[in-house]
């Protein structure tokens, strides 16, 4: 708060009312409702519900299906995060190095940010098309008979490739801006101290980028877990079947297609707790980041 804030008694309340009411109606109420209904078993035909205690949760814990989805989410998140971060870092370092065409490269490497995940997924379908997809042909060249939507592993690979492609721009933007905010004098000092560009990067540049990288790590985990919904949904062409899916997709599937409100709510609650932990972790990091600069 500012030292010399205004002391008007009703104006701030008036200013806060729209935001607070939206949040209460569309955030706290739903969240509370989810927690409550996670302890109930919904009648599939809509005739009321029965209190079942923690049964929905124990069901989740025992479900082989759920465990499979959870493991896929872990792998998917780890691979997407690692690949999109490292490719973006490489590109950002190179874009920061070159003098000529730096702006053009920047534009070319960031525009994909604006593409919606399902649109990216749709492009993915075209590229991995069974008979004519350029990437299917490319893999076929190496003797890999790529079957999107049929083979679990192939579908997962395609989803990962599209998800990485879609996420590179954000990471690129943040890495580049992180690199550009490293003071010139620090770079010059490093130039004098060390003549190996490779060592300079790992000894000086990378540690200075670490706060950005930590921050992006969380962003990417969140992205892979939640924002890839559109990619996954389009790439399995609306037929979940035996296709790979993430935890969020399963919440959607069980809640809206399977009409298992209690189970879906319990899954929601599990995810909420997961995100909560992530976010607390992130706040800690942001605090440290502020001290760092």
């Amino acid at each position: 708060m500012k030292r010399a804030g205004f002391t008007n008694p009703w104006l701030p309340i008036l200013l806060l009312v729209p935001q607070l009411s939206i949040i209460v109606v569309f955030f706290y109420w739903p969240a509370a409702w989810a927690i409550q209904s996670s302890f109930y078993l919904q009648d599939p035909f809509g005739f009321g519900s029965t209190f079942v205690g923690a049964e929905n949760y124990t069901d989740i814990a025992q479900s082989i299906e759920y465990r499979k989805v959870a493991w896929f989410t872990v792998y998917f998140t780890a691979i997407v995060t690692f690949l999109s971060l490292s490719i973006a870092l490489l590109l950002a370092v190179k874009a920061d190095n070159v003098l000529r065409g730096a702006k053009t490269y920047r534009t070319l490497l960031m525009w994909v940010y604006a593409i919606a995940p399902p649109v990216a997924g749709f492009l993915g379908i075209m590229f991995f098309d069974q008979s004519h997809g350029p990437l299917t042909r490319f893999f076929g060249f190496f003797g890999w008979d790529f079957k999107l939507g049929v083979d679990y592993f192939d579908t997962a690979t395609a989803m990962i490739i599209v998800a990485v492609w879609k996420q590179i721009p954000v990471n690129f933007i943040f890495f580049l801006s992180g690199l550009q905010s490293i003071p010139r004098s620090v770079r010059e000092a490093a130039l004098i101290d060390n003549n190996s560009g490779f060592r300079r990067f790992w000894d000086v540049t990378f540690p200075l980028l670490a706060p950005t990288a930590f921050f992006l790590l969380i962003i990417n985990i969140t992205y892979a877990m939640f924002d890839t919904f559109g990619i996954i949904d389009t790439m399995m062409k609306g037929e979940p079947g035996a296709n790979p899916m993430t935890l969020v997709y399963k919440v959607y599937l069980d809640g809206f297609r399977g009409n298992d409100l209690g189970g879906s709510s319990a899954q929601s609650v599990v995810l909420m707790v997961l995100v909560l932990v992530l976010t607390i972790f992130q706040f800690r990091l942001i605090e440290r980041r502020i001290h760092y600069t």
Binding site: V248, G255, S265, M272, V275
Partner: peptide
């Protein structure tokens, strides 16, 4: 909590 987590409610 992103919207995706609480879509159902």
């Amino acid at each position: 909590l992103p919207l995706e987590v609480r879509i159902l409610p």
